[in-house]
Design a protein around this nucleic acid. Structure first.
Length: 930
RNA sequence: GGGCAAUUAGCUCAGUUGGUUAGAGCGCCACAUUGACAUUGUGGAGGUCACAAGUUCGAAUCUUGUAUUGCCCACCA
């Protein structure tokens, strides 16, 4: 290499100043800014190009980037960059979610702690609490934004949205009103999941069940024995229920009454027969607590039984519990059992009873079912017009997936999806927290207080309330009487607004205050919605298939008449080395992308999460894996550095190399083989990404760059470099690798792009050129590679130092090919005397031999040969071959095989047999000669 | 209780409609040190594809059963 000081061409020498190792920290932020400034992320709604759209699942506005986000961003960025390079109008909409319960909880806790305020909601009031939460969100929103950038996400920041943006809020109200008018939203007293800790209802999907061991008591109740793990709910019990077909209780008729001594003295109880009771369980008889149990509630509804509240919303007993009134349930339970025992009513206690306790997903508090007046989405009512049929929301959910309008990857999740729909009940959408989209319902203080509130049952459970108005626009005055109004206190489930995400983000924000437009009109006047909806791919974790994905399908199809996306790609969870969930309680197993990126680079992190991860399956991540991909990135860096140095030495400016410059020149075997392999690579990568096989494609690229391009092509090109081919190959590689590793490829591209080209992110995806596919060259090169490997293997076997050159004889019929590759074979095999001949070597003894198909490789080892070792090696090989030959012969003798197997399989076997036999003969000859 | 998945080298995983001497990365063993790269190179060892039966000319691959592990769903008081 030339001395830098004697080099006058400062511009050219700059290339070799690429550092020996790639340093992502000095590159990534700068590259990201270049992309952003270039406008490459910004999609054009007026373009005529085919759209390709992804809505980014919005992280919590107050969140921190974690591996779940990282894997999502990496996958989506690959899809988007690939589509963009393919010439599609690629749009990736970023945004953040207000995460109602989670955010409110964080801020409340913070106030409690910092200002020693036990109940901030009571002390500060709604307006002040909301102002503080909004402040907090504003301050922390920037964090997640910059972290999303760190991953290299090429999303369109000019279209960034937040679930609480005015237009998105408007969309929520529009949909609520539409659903109310269609009878799909109703208000009713139903049993809901009450979280006494957060003081709000939560939906069925927001609770999880935890197995818990609890004493299981059996009590005497009149003539019956009933069992329960929750005696504290039993104060008001006055019905016993049994299965109608249970013979043991045949003499009791439905509606019979009897006297029973119970907690607070004698009660009159009624016999109810209902199929919900399992005769096999316990005594087959139970008492019911309709206010605090979903099944009991349904039984009570069926038979129009009385319902009574026993536990308040704080989790304390009500006055019906007499001396236990005001007591928290955990404390009261043993005391109640004690009281019943004293009365002689406790029959037995099973201490080993295990049951599933419902726990709040967020707060972790034990859920207490309660009857409350809440807002619900009716999923059964068949009023939605879809493809000219009236359907329920449930039916729409099934229809679009069954008719393949939406595909789920991996397919098996369709089953899970359908199963979930089958069990879907009406969705409770109101929450008793303040942070969120307030229910757009207004109550007249005059109408409702002037007249008594009358409710009339219309259809089923739906009720109509006088003085209640559901409105998109805020109402100050009662439209009926002009009286002052107040808005419903509740807010909507976070998933209600999230369910609109694919399209509410595309509605023109400028129209947010134009109330002269209805929803269809808003959509019509939004160019983004017109151009970019439905979106192409919804990529997210399988763990929110129900929470979010299904609800988007439900709400979007209903509200816009369009499916929200065509394909659902579900990725798995990233776990620790031991397959456990990464959790903050075990910091040693945690991998924090924010630590990893500075250390290994975003490209390496991306690869380590994508390769080895298949859709729908969890994958494991640990630091060595990431380091491995960091090494790969560095390998690519050095290969490029090498090529650039070669160009520099030859006085060639890579920018002037045109993609076809090599076509007029004489190409070496390796060049022709490389060109073939590159075209194959283009085909595999393109088809692979199109089929969502990202892991496979990643491995393919990794192997190509390292095992073929670096290990063979670059080595072969040394001393005989075809600079045009080198540059062409690297450009191809950079393009194909760009969606996976955007940073390093963009950085290297700057050094070798053609003169007039700009950023790699805007380059077009390579098209496969079939005319360059010279397979024979590729196969020939592989033969040469096999020979070189054979020589190396023989040398290693005999411990010949790499510095010592060897004498080798190759016996082959492919004289012309091998002669043309003489230099390469000698250099890479470390040979100084090479004989290539057609005729066999006869009885020479001091040879170590390696037998390839059609070619023998002999290493001359004057004096060093260990004949016994050689014999053992060859005999081993002979044995293996004999076995293989035996197996194939048996196959070919089998008439059934010859008759039934396809022609090409049979010819294949015959060819294999012939080549094995030839090799065997050679080995036997050689053994005889030793 | 119902459903879904997984089980292939010491570890993490590929293996696309059944036909390969079953592959890769990491780790391991031996050798190599100013040569694009030690974040490296060269060579090597390592697997009865969880088990059993079946379908087939032929099974890691298809069917059934068993075992182990993980996940999801469910109203068993």
């Amino acid at each position: 290499m030339s001395d830098a000081s004697s080099e006058p061409q400062a511009a050219a020498s700059a290339l070799t100043r690429l550092p020996k190792t790639y340093d992502p920290t000095s590159v990534e932020d700068r590259i990201y800014k270049m992309w952003e400034d270039s406008g490459a992320f910004t999609a054009d709604a007026t373009s005529t190009k085919e759209p390709f759209v992804i809505s980014m699942p919005p992280p919590n506005a107050t969140g921190q980037l974690h591996l779940g986000h990282a894997v999502m961003l990496a996958l989506e960025d690959i899809f988007i960059r690939f589509a963009r390079m393919q010439g599609k109008e690629a749009l990736w909409v970023p945004g953040t979610d207000h995460a109602a319960i989670a955010t409110e909880a964080v801020v409340i806790r913070q106030i409690q702690k910092e200002e020693k305020m036990p109940d901030p909601r009571a002390t500060l009031g709604r307006e002040e609490v909301l102002r503080r939460i909004a402040d907090f969100v504003m301050k922390s929103q920037g964090t997640i934004r910059s972290q999303v950038r760190k991953m290299g996400s090429s999303c369109d920041w000019s279209r960034e949205r937040y679930t609480m943006d005015p237009m998105l809020n408007r969309c929520v109200n529009e949909v609520f009103v539409k659903m109310y008018n269609d009878g799909l939203i109703y208000r009713g007293h139903r049993i809901v999941n009450w979280d006494p800790k957060m003081k709000t209802t939560v939906s069925d999907d927001e609770i999880e069940r935890k197995e818990e061991k609890a004493p299981f008591y059996t009590f005497q109740y009149g003539p019956f024995q009933i069992s329960t793990a929750r005696p504290e709910t039993k104060f008001g019990d006055k019905y016993v229920v049994m299965h109608p077909d249970d013979k043991r209780y045949k003499k009791y008729k439905h509606g019979d009454t009897f006297e029973a001594e119970w907690m607070n003295g004698p009660v009159t109880a009624t016999v109810i027969k209902d199929k919900a009771v399992d005769p096999e369980f316990g005594t087959g008889v139970m008492t019911i607590t309709p206010w605090h149990d979903a099944v009991d509630f349904e039984i009570a509804e069926r038979h129009e039984l009385d319902k009574q509240q026993i536990i308040d919303y704080e989790g304390k007993l009500l006055p019906i519990a007499e001396e236990f009134s005001g007591m928290p349930i955990e404390k009261a339970r043993p005391l109640i059992v004690g009281k019943l025992q004293k009365k002689g009513l406790l029959v037995k206690t099973d201490e080993n009873y295990v049951h599933a306790v419902a726990v709040s997903y967020r707060g972790g508090g034990v859920i207490e079912p309660q009857i409350k007046e809440q807002w619900f989405v009716d999923v059964h009512k068949e009023v939605v017009l879809w493809k000219k049929k009236k359907m329920s929301l449930k039916q729409i959910l099934q229809e679009v997936v069954r008719k393949k309008e939406i595909a789920i990857i991996p397919e098996r999740f369709e089953k899970t999806y359908f199963h979930w729909i089958d069990n879907l009940k009406d969705w409770c959408i109101s929450r008793q927290i303040w942070w969120g989209h307030r229910v757009p319902v207004y109550y007249c203080e005059v109408c409702t207080s002037g007249k008594t509130v009358t409710t009339e049952k219309t259809e089923g459970r739906r009720q109509k309330t006088v003085g209640m108005f559901v409105s998109v626009k805020a109402l100050d005055r009662c439209p009926a009487c002009g009286g002052s109004m107040h808005q419903d206190e509740d807010t909507l489930d976070t998933w209600f607004s999230a369910a609109l995400w694919t399209w509410s983000t595309l509605v023109d924000p400028a129209l947010a205050d134009d109330f002269s437009l209805d929803l269809p009109e808003l959509l019509k006047r939004s160019p983004d919605f017109q151009k970019f909806h439905p979106t192409s791919v919804m990529e997210t974790g399988y763990d929110i298939l129900f929470f979010w994905v299904a609800r988007m399908i439900l709400m979007t199809t209903y509200a816009t008449g369009q499916i929200p996306f065509k394909t659902i790609y579900l990725h798995g969870l990233i776990r620790t080395r031991d397959g456990k969930k990464m959790s903050k309680s075990h910091p040693e197993t945690m991998i924090d992308p924010l630590d990893i990126i500075p250390k290994y680079g975003a490209d390496a992190l991306r690869l380590s999460m994508i390769v080895g991860q298949s859709p729908g399956n969890d994958s494991k991540l640990y630091e060595e894996k990431i380091a491995g991909y960091r090494n790969f990135i560095n390998k690519l860096w050095n290969a490029s550095r090498f090529v650039l140095m070669q160009c520099e030495e030859a006085g060639i400016d890579p920018a002037e190399v045109r993609d076809t410059s090599f076509e007029t020149r004489e190409l070496s075997l390796a060049d022709r083989a490389l060109l073939y392999a590159l075209e194959e690579l283009v085909e595999d990568v393109t088809k692979g990404i199109e089929a969502y096989r990202l892991s496979e494609v990643g491995e393919r690229l990794y192997g190509f760059v390292w095992d073929f391009f670096c290990d063979w092509y670059l080595e072969l090109s040394k001393g005989n470099a075809n600079h045009a081919v080198l540059i062409h190959a690297l450009r191809r590689i950079l393009k194909l690798l760009h969606p996976y590793c955007p940073f390093i490829t963009e950085e290297l591209w700057a050094h070798m792009k053609p003169q007039k080209s700009g950023l790699l992110i805007k380059e077009s995806w390579p098209a496969e050129k079939k005319e360059r596919k010279d397979k024979k060259s590729f196969d020939d090169l592989h033969h040469v590679i096999d020979i070189i490997t054979a020589v190396r293997s023989l040398r290693a076997e005999y411990g010949i130092e790499p510095s010592k050159l060897g004498t080798v004889t190759i016996v082959s019929k492919k004289i012309e090919l091998l002669e043309s590759q003489r230099e390469n074979i000698m250099r890479l095999g470390r040979i100084d005397v090479l004989t290539i001949q057609e005729k066999s070597l006869g009885s020479t003894k001091d040879l170590a031999s390696y037998f390839l198909e059609k070619t023998e490789v002999h290493l001359h080892l004057a004096g060093l040969i260990d004949i016994e070792k050689e014999k053992t090696n060859l005999s081993k090989e002979k044995e293996t071959l004999s076995k293989l030959i035996g197996a194939i012969e048996a196959k070919l003798k089998n008439k059934e095989f010859v008759a039934r197997a396809p022609e090409e399989v049979i010819t294949g076997e015959r060819e294999k047999l012939a080549s094995y036999q030839e090799k065997l003969t050679k080995i036997e000859e050689r053994l005889k000669n030793l």
